[in-house]
Design a protein around this nucleic acid. Structure first.
Length: 696
RNA sequence: GGCGAGGUAGCUCAGUUGGUUAGAGCGUCGGAUUCAUAACCCGAAGGUCACGAGUUCAACUCUCGUCCUCGCUACCA
C-alpha cells in the first residue's frame, strides 16, 4: 500500500457523565496521542479529533437527580474531562462537544440525507409512556427489577448491577422515574437502520479489506479481537437497530411528525467526529472534506473494546450509506485495564481518577503515561498495580533514563563548564553508538506505525540503556586524568544520545522531552560543539513507598463500605444521604398495609438442588413450603453450589404467579439479600421454624 | 449454552508465514564499579510454552477435545 500523507485520527468521545480514569487513558487516548505525535513528527498532515459525548438519557437522569439542567451537567463534565486531557498532554487538535450547534446541524443533515435516500425503515412499536407527564419514556427513564439478577433499580437499557443489557419491557415492575408511577405501553414510531442489508459488503470489507472492489486496507494490520468480534456479529446475522428515541435531550429528528424524538446517542456520537473536524477546519482555514472524503486520507479510530461494533460495523454502514465518506483504515481497539486484581468499576469506585492522580502526584503525568504504555492492554486485558507503577518509575525512568541524562550532564558541567565538547577521532564503538541513534528511531517509529506502542517505548528505553553502558565501558571519570581529548568525544556522544532521547521519547513523554530539551538548551536534531547547556535538575524523582501505600489504602477505603464505629449508639435519621450505606438504593414509593399482605411469604426448606440443564446462572430447587413440595428456579447458581443450599431454611414468596424459566416451571421466588458488590445471601430464620410459617 | 479473544519464566508481557539450545524488562542471586537519585554495568539461575490427543522429518506456532480467564449473548418471578 502506498504511503499516505493525510490522517484523521479520532479517539472515542468520552461520555460527559463523569470524570476519566486510568482505563480510559490507557485504552484509547494515550495510544492515540502517541500515534499522532509520531505522525506529526514525521511531518504528516493530521487532524486529531475528540470531544465530549453529551447526549443521552443517562445525562438527563443525572440532571434530574442533581436538580439541574442537562446542559449544566455536560458543561461541568466537559470542562473536567477537557482539563484532564490537557493535563496529561493528550494534544487534540480540537476537543469539541456534541451539544454544539454545529454538531446538531451536522448530525441532523446526516440523518436527513439517509432518510431521503430511504436508508431507514420506520417501525411502530409499543413503548412505555408516562401518563402523568404525557411523554414517552426513554429506556433510562424506566427502572424496575432486573429480570436477570433480580436486583431493584435496573434501568430500561441496562442493569448496572449485573451489566446485562435490557429492553424496558423486560423489567419486572417497571416504574417511571418521572412520576414514580407505573407507565403504560403506547404505540410510537421510530426509525431503524436495517443493518442486515449491509452484511455482504461488510463481511468482505472486514475479512479482506476490499471495498467496492478496491483494496481499502490490509486486514492483517487489524487486531485480532477487532476482526473477531465484527465477524462474530456479522456471522450471527445483523439486526435492524433503532436510531431514534423519545427524549427531549439530543439532536432533534429532522422529520415532520417527529416531535419529542431525538437521534439515539450512538448514531449521533460518531458523527461528532465529523462535526468536530468541521469546527477545527473552520478555525484553522482548512477544508474538512479533505479529512473525510479523500481516498488518500487515512481514518483511524482509537477506542476501547466495548466500542468495536460501533466503529467496525455501525458507523461504517452509516458512512457508506451516506456516500462520499471514507471508511476507517484501522480501528486499533485496546482491551481492558484491570486495577489491583479487579476490573475497574466506577459504580464501586474501584478506579484511579485522573484528576485525583494529579493531586497526589503533581507534575507526574509522564510517569503515568510511561507506565500505562508499558502495560497497555494491546492484545489482552492487563493489570495496573501501584507497586508495579512504583517499580517501573524507579527502576526504569529514574534509574535508566533519568540517571543516564544526569550522568552525562553532570560530567559535562564538571569537566567542561557545561559546554558541549567537540568530537575527536571516533572509535568503532563510538560509531556504533552514534548509528544506534538512527536505528533506534527507525525501530521506534516502525513499531508505532504498526500500533505496537508498548514495544516501541521499550525500544526507546534501550537507547538510554545503551547510554549507561557506553559510559560504564568508556569510564570518562577515569580517563579525565590521562586523556582529556578522549573524554571530550565520549561526552559529546553521550550528549548526542541525550538529545536523541529527547526527540525519540517525545510521543511517549512529552513533558519530559520538553524538560530535557530545556536542560540541553536545544531543539535541534544534533548538538554542536561549544553549545552551552543549562544547569540540569533531576529528570524524574523516585516514588517513595509511603506514597504507594497511601494510594492502595485510599483505593481500599473508598471502595468498601465504611466500618461502623464501636461505641456509637445513635445514628442521624431521616435525611437523604445520611444513611450508613451511601450506595443503598433509595426507598421505593410508599405502599399500604393491604398492598403488603397480598404477598404470601413463608418459611420453606430446600430439599434438593441441581443445576438448571440449560442455563449457567440458574438452580432448580425443590422446596418444602409446608403447604406443598414444589419446584422453584432461582438465579443463584453463581453464588451457591447445589450441595451448599440443600437443607437450608429460607424465606419464600409462595403466591407469585408461576412462570416457565428456561423451560422449567417455577412456582414462587426465594428471597435474597444483596450487598453493594452484588453478592447474595438467603433470608433465613434465625432459629429453626416450621415450614409454611408466615413471614410478616 | 452460543460466539469472540486469551492462557508462555516469581511479575508484566513479546513470539511474525511450523525448523537448530523459547525471548525482553522488572524481580532474585553472584560479580564489577563509583561520574550518577545505593543509581549504572557484567554474568547466572529460573519455563514439561494450561492439559490431552492428532497431522508432520519437525509444533508455543496447524487440527480436534478438555479445563480456566475476559468480553458479547441467552436463562435469574
Amino acid at each position: 500500500m502506498k504511503e499516505k500523507k493525510r490522517y484523521t485520527i479520532t479517539a472515542a468521545l468520552p461520555y460527559a457523565n463523569g470524570p476519566l480514569h486510568l482505563g480510559h487513558l490507557a485504552g484509547a487516548y494515550l495510544p492515540a496521542d502517541i500515534f499522532v505525535r509520531y505522525l506529526k513528527a514525521k511531518g504528516n498532515d493530521v487532524a486529531f479529533i475528540c470531544g465530549s459525548d453529551e447526549h443521552g438519557a443517562a445525562i438527563t437522569l443525572r440532571a434530574k437527580k442533581e436538580g439541574c439542567t442537562p446542559q449544566e451537567i455536560v458543561d461541568k463534565n466537559h470542562e473536567i474531562i477537557k482539563k484532564s486531557f490537557s493535563n496529561f498532554g493528550i494534544d487534540f487538535d480540537i476537543y469539541h462537544r456534541t451539544s454544539s450547534k454545529l454538531h446538531h446541524e451536522t448530525a441532523s443533515d446526516f440523518f436527513k440525507n439517509l432518510y431521503e435516500k430511504g436508508s431507514f425503515t420506520q417501525e411502530t412499536t409499543e413503548q412505555f409512556f408516562d401518563q402523568e407527564h404525557q411523554q414517552f419514556l426513554a429506556d433510562r427513564y424506566v427502572t424496575g427489577t432486573c429480570p436477570k439478577c433480580n436486583s431493584a433499580g435496573a434501568y430500561g437499557d441496562q442493569c448496572e448491577k449485573c451489566g446485562s443489557s435490557l429492553s424496558p419491557t423486560d423489567l419486572i415492575n417497571p416504574i417511571s422515574t418521572l412520576s414514580g408511577k407505573t407507565p403504560v405501553l403506547k404505540e410510537t414510531t421510530h426509525w431503524f437502520l436495517p443493518m442486515n442489508k449491509h452484511e455482504k459488503w461488510l463481511k468482505t470489507w472486514i475479512e479482506t479489506g476490499v471495498l467496492d472492489g478496491k483494496q481499502q486496507h490490509n486486514p492483517s494490520e487489524w487486531r485480532k479481537q477487532v476482526i473477531g468480534q465484527c465477524k462474530s456479529w456479522i456471522d450471527n446475522g445483523l439486526q435492524p437497530r433503532s436510531i431514534t428515541r423519545d427524549l427531549d435531550w439530543g439532536v432533534k429528528v429532522p422529520v415532520d411528525g417527529a416531535d419529542g424524538k431525538v437521534l439515539y446517542v450512538w448514531f449521533d456520537a460518531p458523527i461528532g467526529y465529523i462535526s468536530a473536524t468541521k469546527q477545527w477546519a473552520a478555525d484553522n482555514g482548512k477544508n474538512w472534506e479533505d479529512y473525510w472524503k479523500d481516498n488518500n486520507t487515512q481514518l483511524i479510530h482509537f477506542i476501547g473494546k466495548d466500542n468495536i461494533v460501533f466503529h467496525g460495523i455501525i458507523f461504517p454502514i452509516i458512512l457508506k450509506e451516506h456516500g462520499d465518506f471514507i471508511l476507517p483504515t484501522n480501528v486499533p481497539a485496546n482491551e481492558f485495564l484491570n486495577l489491583e486484581g479487579d476490573k475497574i468499576s466506577t459504580s464501586r469506585n474501584w478506579a484511579v481518577w485522573l484528576h485525583e492522580y494529579l493531586e497526589d502526584f503533581p507534575n507526574k503525568q509522564d510517569e503515568l503515561r510511561y507506565v500505562l504504555t508499558s502495560i497497555a492492554p494491546e492484545t489482552k486485558d492487563s493489570e495496573f498495580t501501584w507497586k508495579d507503577f512504583q517499580a517501573r518509575v524507579n527502576n526504569e525512568l529514574v534509574a535508566i533514563f533519568g540517571n543516564f541524562v544526569n550522568r552525562s550532564l553532570v560530567l559535562t558541567h564538571k569537566y567542561f563548564e557545561g559546554k558541549v565538547p567537540s568530537q575527536g577521532t571516533l572509535t568503532e564503538y563510538d560509531k556504533e553508538v552514534l548509528s544506534s541513534i538512527t536505528s533506534t528511531q527507525h525501530k521506534v517509529y516502525e513499531l508505532i506505525a504498526t500500533y505496537r506502542f508498548r514495544d516501541a517505548q521499550t525500544e526507546a528505553m534501550t537507547l538510554a540503556r545503551l547510554g549507561n553502558k557506553y559510559l560504564a565501558d568508556t569510564e570518562p571519570w577515569k580517563l579525565i586524568k590521562t586523556d582529556e581529548e578522549r573524554v571530550k568525544t565520549i561526552l559529546n556522544i553521550s550528549l548526542q544520545l541525550c538529545n536523541a532521547l529527547s526527540i525519540i521519547f517525545e510521543p511517549f513523554l512529552p513533558y519530559t522531552s520538553k524538560k530535557l530539551k530545556g536542560f540541553l538548551n536545544s531543539n535541534a536534531s544534533e548538538l554542536n560543539s561549544g553549545h552551552q547547556l543549562n544547569q540540569p535538575e533531576l529528570l524524574f524523582e523516585k516514588i517513595e513507598d509511603e506514597a504507594i501505600e497511601a494510594q492502595i489504602e485510599k483505593l481500599k477505603k473508598i471502595s468498601s463500605p465504611a466500618p461502623s464505629k464501636g461505641g456509637e449508639t445513635t445514628f442521624p435519621l431521616g435525611r437523604v444521604g445520611d444513611g450508613t450505606n451511601p450506595k443503598a438504593k433509595p426507598m421505593k414509593d410508599e405502599i399500604t398495609f393491604d398492598d403488603f399482605i397480598k404477598m404470601d411469604i413463608r418459611v420453606a426448606t430446600i430439599l434438593a438442588a441441581e443445576k438448571h440443564p440449560d442455563a449457567d446462572k440458574l438452580l432448580k430447587l425443590t422446596v418444602d413450603t409446608g403447604i406443598d413440595v414444589r419446584t422453584v428456579v432461582s438465579g443463584i447458581a453463581e453464588h451457591y453450589k447445589p450441595e451448599d443450599v440443600v437443607g437450608k431454611q429460607v424465606s419464600m414468596l409462595v403466591n407469585l404467579a408461576p412462570r416457565k424459566i428456561r423451560g422449567i416451571e417455577s412456582k414462587g421466588m426465594i428471597l435474597m439479600a444483596e450487598n453493594n458488590e452484588g453478592s447474595l445471601a438467603f433470608i433465613s430464620p434465625e432459629k429453626a421454624m416450621d415450614n409454611g410459617g408466615e413471614v410478616r
